[in-house]
Write a protein that binds this DNA or RNA. Structure first.
Length: 328
DNA sequence: TTGAGACCGGCTACAAGCGT
DNA sequence: ACGCTTGTAGCCGGTCTCAA
């Protein structure tokens, strides 16, 4: 890796001149600057982040975001919003989609000030992860539900969000609901809603999905081809990933929302207005407030009297749109 | 084993050189 | 004398080397 020393040698100038030229600062002749930039290009020069940071006496503050296999629209929105919130407070963000151990080591090496890690409640830290964490001096925030000692934690009330969706459907007058999704806390929220609002509970109305398995189309068709009196009038879909597969199913078999059934989906992102012809009713945390809360936990000191490591829950919100109407 | 000193890369403040 | 350009020294914190 070329350094400014190599450039200085090649350009027959000193380090200070190279530094000024590369940083587009005054005090360098045009021809010298041009020569330096040309040599830097030829040597494929790139800045050393830790060294620059050292030189700037830790003024280049940054937050590392670990999001293993980050994909989907929610990931994109969250990263953008966290960057925006961090930026407003004088921080930059770096995002890694590598596995948490690798990402943590990378951020530690690059001297990131604080780290937010998106991990599901099922995640458990490895020895390598804990080893690196021992050496890390910044604040740590676990997002998404995973537990970690000496870290802030911001959980999402997924159970409560789905429960709220069920409540919304019950208030519209639906009594036969179906759930499409994985066997997670969201399903618990669905079942609790069915129980609390005294709706019809039928085990076959819970259509479990698996990301790696084919979409259970036959089970859904079986449900929808039942006599009208027992057919579900509303569906709750537990994630964006399942929604796309569900929408594919709807189109393939000619079903219409909300004419044939109402639809509530988990993930409050604005694209949900455009997935189908009708805007979808969503439940889930508001991305902007979730990101604000996350950055706040990382950067704010705990109020007096509170313990240093805080455990917060992000509120979810229901946005009722045209995909949910009262049953006929 | 311990401590001192050199080194790493990049930036900044200040000094020096040069042309007009 | 002045302004622009270039050079030098010192700084940062962690790591490595080497001598005591």
């Amino acid at each position: 890796m070329a350094t400014i020393k190599d450039i200085a040698q090649a350009a027959k100038v000193t380090l200070g001149t190279v530094s000024r030229a590369l940083n587009n600062e005054p005090g360098v002749g045009d021809k010298t600057r041009e020569r330096i930039l040309q040599i830097a290009k030829e040597l494929n020069y790139s800045r050393s982040v830790p060294a620059k940071k050292q030189a700037l006496q830790a003024e280049a503050k940054s937050i590392g975001i670990i999001w293993h296999r980050g994909n989907g629209l929610f990931f994109g929105h969250m990263c953008n919003e966290m960057e925006r919130q961090a930026n407003a407070r004088g921080y930059s963000t770096l995002v890694s989609i590598a596995n948490p151990e690798k990402a943590f080591q990378l951020f530690h090496r690059h001297q990131v000030d604080h780290i937010a890690s998106w991990c599901l409640p099922t995640w458990t830290p490895t020895y390598a992860f804990l080893q690196t964490k021992e050496q890390f001096k910044g604040n740590m925030l676990m997002l998404g539900g995973a537990l970690l000692d000496r870290s802030h934690r911001l959980t999402i009330d997924r159970k409560g969000a789905i429960y709220e969706g069920v409540q919304h459907l019950a208030e519209l007058g639906h009594t036969r609901l179906a759930f499409v999704g994985a066997e997670t806390e969201k399903l618990i929220g669905f079942t609790m809603g069915i129980l609390d609002f005294q709706l019809h509970y039928r085990p076959e109305s819970i259509v479990l999905t698996d990301r790696l398995a084919p979409f259970p189309e036959e089970r859904l068709l079986h449900l929808l081809r039942q006599p009208e009196a027992s057919r579900p009038t509303a569906f709750v879909v537990d994630s964006q990933g399942n929604l796309y597969r569900f929408v594919h199913f709807i189109r393939k078999h000619g079903y219409r929302v909300p004419d044939d059934f109402s639809l509530v989906v988990y993930d409050a992102i604005y694209e949900m207005e455009f997935v189908l012809d009708v805007p979808l009713t969503t439940v889930g945390p508001n991305v902007e407030s979730l990101a604000k809360q996350a950055i706040g936990l990382l950067l704010d000191d705990a109020p007096a009297g509170e313990e240093q490591w805080r455990n917060a829950t992000a509120e979810s919100e229901l946005i009722a749109r045209a995909s949910t109407v009262s049953p006929k």
